[in-house]
Design a protein around this nucleic acid. Structure first.
Length: 585
RNA sequence: GCGCCCGUAGCUCAGCUGGAUAGAGUACCGCCCUCCGAAGGCGGGGGUCACAGGUUCAACUCCUGUCGGGCGCGCCA
């Protein structure tokens, strides 16, 4: 509809230029907006105001000129000039109501677009370290990432969802050490658990599994382990201490044994995460291993290419990337003085790998605490000769949890956190998914657990789902009363939908495709949330104002067509958000 | 200190990439079920859009500065 009006305006402009009433070199970006106020019609354009200066004419005069040159249209009812020079358009009602038959034909396909046809997008999200279960902070990234992916698919992109598994590095070694120490407890050993070890219950479970499978095979006494160890906190340094334990573990255990402990821990947690996300309705096309980048030689290759680019140097035994050449605040280490590559080096290789896979666009969704990391990754891509603009990093602010009005402090290491699994079980996947995407990602999210877990009616999700359930309920009433719905008859009598509530609802329905397109392109699922709330509101208002099951068959069928269309749109929208549309509540 | 994000109704947030009188929810007050689910609807009060300048026919929106809040500035990942 918007396009039709923009096209008409373009015609009018060209016509004015042909007959000399406007200068030839005039170019205008035609903008058509939904009128905010009903008194301003359905659509409005500020075209006359924007070209006033270039055309050297008064906006109101220009508006009249444009209107006079508008081509005939079968959708425009009338045109008005208002205020300083706005042009307001009123749409013919039969053009509006055609959206109903469109929805009833397309059903679950209504709203889909082909904006991204033929374009491939890779989207990576969550990617939490496999050192423990997902917590509610990760949940936001999961819900947001999945919703963005759904929206992009809906507008025609070929979307590939990926989870980057950080299965290399120090954190994983700490996990392995934590598991091993818990395992020693099961062998009957007693010792003080390291301050910096992972203390969550899941570590006990992993250790138990390890002990079940292997008995005491990997047992070493604490006196043997603790020999020459530095002091743990509070007397000593907890970081040095845990590293010393890892070293000791590596010397005491056969490499195969070390890897076994490591892998049992990794796989246990990864399985848990995968299972958790699946129940959350979040599925990935690929789980990409950080270690695989080292094994495949991609890390070496990335480092070579970076060094060839001339933006690397050696200092104090380490190899540095001169990211400050590309706007980063300081240079970054790629290879440590001990010869080990950094996480950053893997990440460069990973992003290089992503772009080499031929995606038109690559989206990373990170926690906002990683924002300082963006410039260095883009710098690396630029140094490698790739286009850094192909990478979109979307930063999600953390969800701040409240319980009893108090902010909850969380730490993975101490094991004090609310898991996503827990949240899901308490409030259900639907409410959690909905809550997480209600506000835009750069906004802090206050997640009140008491409110969410109490299944309160305050949750706007119920309002939307209720609208859907109400439509379904009307249809069960219909058969109870011995009526049948004749869709074809309803579509033939859409002109009977003359009530203002009906017009408002139809107008709202007609905007759905636009909302999907915009929410997708701007990566903003919250726009869809707000739309659905408005749509539900329009429906509930209509429901209260008018009876649908009336004796007049034509009116009845027409109204049933309208509410069925509403049901489809609600269902389609909720499904993109990962929320169900129940028929009964 | 530097960098990124945020400051809109008592509270939680929208505001369509500069447009017409700044909107919802919630909370508070008052109405509406002999009628398809009241998990609903209708009405009411409540705002110097943090502050100060600037650009513009037009600024919540763009620019600069100030103040307030969050986060980040490792040879951790």
């Amino acid at each position: 509809m918007k396009e039709a009006i923009a096209e008409a305006l373009q015609h009018a402009l060209s016509r004015c230029q042909e007959n000399g009433s406007l200068p030839d070199d005039l170019t205008a970006r035609i903008q058509v907006d939904h009128a905010r106020d009903k008194q301003h019609g359905d659509f409005a354009t500020n075209l006359a105001l924007t070209i006033a200066k270039a055309a050297k004419q008064k906006p109101r005069d220009l508006a009249e000129l444009i209107v006079a040159n508008l081509p005939d249209s079968d959708v425009i009812e009338k045109v008005e000039i208002a205020g300083p020079g706005f042009i307001n358009f009123y749409i013919k009602s039969d053009a509006q109501s055609s959206v109903i038959s469109n929805i009833l034909n397309r059903q679950e396909k209504f709203g889909l677009a082909e904006i991204g046809k033929g374009k491939k997008i890779q989207i990576e999200f969550v990617s939490a370290n496999p050192t423990g279960p997902l917590h509610v902070g990760h949940g936001r990234g999961a819900a947001y990432g999945a919703a963005v992916a759904n929206l992009l698919k809906a507008i025609g992109y070929d979307v590939h969802c990926e989870y980057y598994v950080n299965d290399a590095g120090r954190q994983m070694n700490i996990l392995a050490a934590s598991v091993w120490l818990r395992y020693l407890e099961l062998c009957g050993e007693e010792y003080p658990f390291p301050v910096n070890g992972y203390k969550g219950d899941y570590v006990l479970d992993i250790a138990a599994a390890l002990h079940r499978e292997n008995g005491d095979k990997m047992y070493h006494s604490w006196t043997e382990i603790s020999k020459d160890l530095p002091k743990d906190e509070p007397e000593g340094d907890k970081e040095l201490y845990i590293d010393a334990i890892i070293d000791k573990m590596k010397t005491l255990l056969h490499p195969d044994q070390y890897n076994l402990v490591f892998d049992v821990g990794l796989n246990y947690i990864l399985d848990d995460i995968r299972d958790d996300l699946e129940h959350f309705g979040v599925v990935y096309d690929e789980w990409f291993s950080e270690r695989s980048l080292t094994n495949s030689g991609d890390v070496t290759l990335a480092l070579e290419r970076l060094q060839k680019s001339g933006h690397c140097y050696e200092k104090e035994g380490a190899i540095w990337f001169k990211s400050s050449d590309f706007g980063d605040e300081k240079d970054r280490v790629l290879v440590r003085d001990n010869g080990q590559t950094t996480y950053f080096a893997s990440d460069i290789a990973y992003h290089m790998n992503k772009l080499e896979r031929g995606y038109d666009r690559v989206i990373d969704i990170w926690g906002a605490d990683h924002h300082g990391y963006v410039p260095r990754v883009k710098a690396a891509l630029q140094a490698l000769g790739d286009d850094p603009d192909k990478l979109d990093v979307l930063l999600v602010q953390f969800a701040v949890l409240y319980r009893g009005g108090e902010k909850i402090q969380m730490s993975t290491r101490s094991g004090q956190f609310v898991t996503l699994r827990h949240l899901r079980k308490e409030v259900g996947s639907d409410a959690a998914r909905f809550f997480y995407v209600m506000r835009k990602c750069e906004q802090h999210l206050d997640f009140d657990l008491d409110l969410a877990m109490s299944q309160s009616n305050d949750n706007p999700m119920y309002y939307i789902q209720y609208a859907h359930a109400r439509v379904c309920s009307v249809f069960s009433q219909l058969s109870d009363k011995g009526f049948e719905f004749d869709q074809a008859n309803g579509l033939a009598h859409l002109d009977l939908l003359i009530e203002s509530h009906e017009n408002a609802l139809v107008t709202r329905l007609s905007r759905y495709p636009e909302i999907i397109a915009r929410a997708g392109q701007q990566h903003e699922p919250h726009q869809l949330v707000h739309y659905l709330r408005d749509l539900a509101n329009e429906f509930h208002t209509y429901y209260n104002a008018h009876q649908f099951i009336v004796d007049d068959k034509n009116v009845r069928d027409a109204r049933l067509c309208l509410i069925t269309a509403t049901r489809h749109v609600i269902s389609n929208g909720l499904s993109l958000l990962g929320v169900s549309a129940p028929e009964k509540m």
